[in-house]
């Protein structure tokens, strides 16, 4: 029987004798590659070691271990920054004696004009509501564990939704859109940046950081003890 290799990328196929191979020295987890469905017996790897699927090279084990301190800290930081950004001026504009200031909610309300209303919902959801809901679900699922208590009811469900909403949280795309919009109006008028703009940019960076430090598999194993 093959022993886990010495290099950083370890994985092994379980082949046919699936159930007969129980290695008491190296407890193993049975994993099916989410990309190609190939079964692997993955040994408990030391932190920092990754495992890839033998057939399609999809990463099976990220080698990261989620630190609850850091993940929860980023979660609270994101929530505070986005809520802060809601209530302060986002951008302001001045030209020929006319001036206008917009907030983040003003941006979302830009389509409150007849049949464009669904777009208001979509924009509100993708830049404010979904990022906040994601963070709230994450904190709900992880905070009791961090306190050393058993997971909250439906904690695993909450974390599943938090992960499923990830592609629909588009704060970072919005910031790039803001950059494009600013270039478009830069010649036309004078632009001022409000505190909400910087808070939102900071939130985007922290969201990207949260993604880097959070390993779904290790959170799943923490939630496994749910009653």
């Amino acid at each position: 029987m093959a022993v886990a290799g010495q290099d950083d990328d370890v994985s092994r196929s379980c082949g046919a004798g699936l159930l007969s191979r129980i290695d008491y020295l190296h407890p193993m987890t049975l994993l099916a590659c989410p990309s190609c469905d190939m079964l692997h017996d993955v040994p408990d790897l030391p932190q920092g070691r990754r495992a890839y699927c033998l057939r399609c090279n999809h990463m099976l084990v990220s080698g990261r271990h989620t630190s609850l301190d850091r993940t929860l800290a980023t979660g609270f930081a994101i929530a505070i920054l986005i809520v802060f950004a809601l209530f302060f001026p986002f951008l302001s504009i001045e030209e020929l004696g006319f001036s206008n200031t917009t907030t983040l909610l003003g941006v979302a309300a830009a389509f409150l004009d007849g049949w464009l209303i669904p777009l208001t919902l979509a924009v509100t959801a993708s830049i404010v509501a979904i990022p906040l809901i994601r963070v709230a679900l994450l904190i709900y699922a992880l905070f009791p564990i961090w306190r050393g208590r058993p997971p909250a009811p439906h904690a695993a469900r909450a974390f599943r939704w938090s992960e499923a909403l990830r592609p629909w949280s588009m704060a970072e795309i919005f910031v790039l859109g803001a950059a494009v919009a600013l270039v478009k109006v830069a010649d036309l008028a004078t632009i001022g940046f409000g505190p909400a703009f910087w808070a939102f940019c900071a939130a985007v960076f922290i969201i990207a950081f949260e993604r880097q430090i959070t390993d779904a598999a290790s959170i799943w194993s923490m939630l496994d003890n749910e009653p």
Binding site: I93, F98, T102, M170, I173, G177
Partner: peptide, 22 residues
């Protein structure tokens, strides 16, 4: 997802550039 950028540009411009007659 990055295709959404143009929609956000339009939303921002609409919210920001409301300078009356100018």
């Amino acid at each position: 997802r990055w295709s959404m950028i143009d929609v956000f540009v339009v939303a921002l411009l609409t919210a920001l550039v409301q300078l009356g007659a100018a």
